[in-house]
Simulated scan of single mutants.
Amino acid sequence: MADERSASVFFFAPFVSSTMAIEPAWIDYNGHLNLAYYHVLFDRAVDEAYGIVGLGPDYTEAGRGTTFAAEVHVRYRRELILDDPVRVTLQLVGFDEKRLHLYSEIRHATDGWVAATSENLSLHVDPATRRVAPFPDDILANLDVMMGSHARLPRPEDLGRVIGIPSRRPLHKPGSGALAAAGGVRIRH
């Protein structure tokens, strides 16, 4: 098979993408990288890592499978501007026969600071049925090698974060707060 790979694939821990440039069209009216393009940078890095694992374009074109994003959590930590070169680090956190759990960081390529983090759950999909399907054995073997390398990395601090508003007082509840105090209209069910 043309896309067949040996389980002796080598993985850096973490995987580090090629250096990427911020494109002028990606800069928004605030003068920094628009939030949508952080996802583009993460996605390009995932494509590079997938190519090493054997999940690249040839794999999909051969009809063996593809991946779909099931869940993504991005945390924006520092703004990027037009002249900032970036690299993305990627860590395989876990996998099973049908899913990949990945953690990535966009880093300034020369200064090393973290601009954003992304935690992703991806599903392996049969392109003919568009349904979740098991990875083939050769891909599982490559993922196992990658996991062995990445398992030595520390658990990322941002992994498993929950979105919320830290506060000493209870969260705003309908019918309370400024609207109620100002005599706002309340709809009763």
Rank of each mutant, 00 (worst) to 15 (best):
175 G>E: 08
126 D>G: 12
120 N>H: 09
160 G>A: 12
150 H>R: 01
140 L>C: 14
184 G>W: 03
92 L>K: 02
149 S>H: 07
77 R>N: 12
184 G>D: 06
147 M>D: 04
149 S>L: 02
75 R>C: 05
184 G>V: 03
183 G>N: 11
130 R>G: 09
30 N>F: 14
105 E>Y: 02
100 L>H: 00
89 T>R: 12
78 R>Y: 03
170 P>W: 03
160 G>P: 00
16 V>L: 07
14 P>M: 07
155 R>C: 02
100 L>E: 00
168 R>D: 15
110 T>I: 14
148 G>R: 13
167 S>L: 05
169 R>H: 14
90 L>V: 11
170 P>S: 06
22 I>Q: 00
146 M>A: 11
170 P>K: 04
99 R>N: 09
73 H>N: 15
79 E>V: 14
83 D>E: 13
102 L>F: 03
32 H>E: 05
49 A>H: 06
21 A>V: 05
78 R>A: 15
162 V>K: 15
103 Y>H: 15
26 W>H: 06
176 S>Y: 06
97 E>K: 11
2 A>L: 12
115 A>P: 03
66 T>I: 04
9 V>W: 02
72 V>D: 06
119 E>D: 07
97 E>I: 06
38 Y>N: 02
47 D>A: 12
118 S>L: 07
83 D>R: 11
155 R>I: 06
90 L>C: 07
168 R>G: 09
133 A>N: 07
176 S>W: 05
101 H>K: 12
5 R>Q: 12
28 D>F: 11
6 S>F: 08
54 G>S: 02
13 A>D: 01
3 D>C: 06
131 R>M: 04
85 P>D: 08
117 T>A: 05
179 L>I: 15
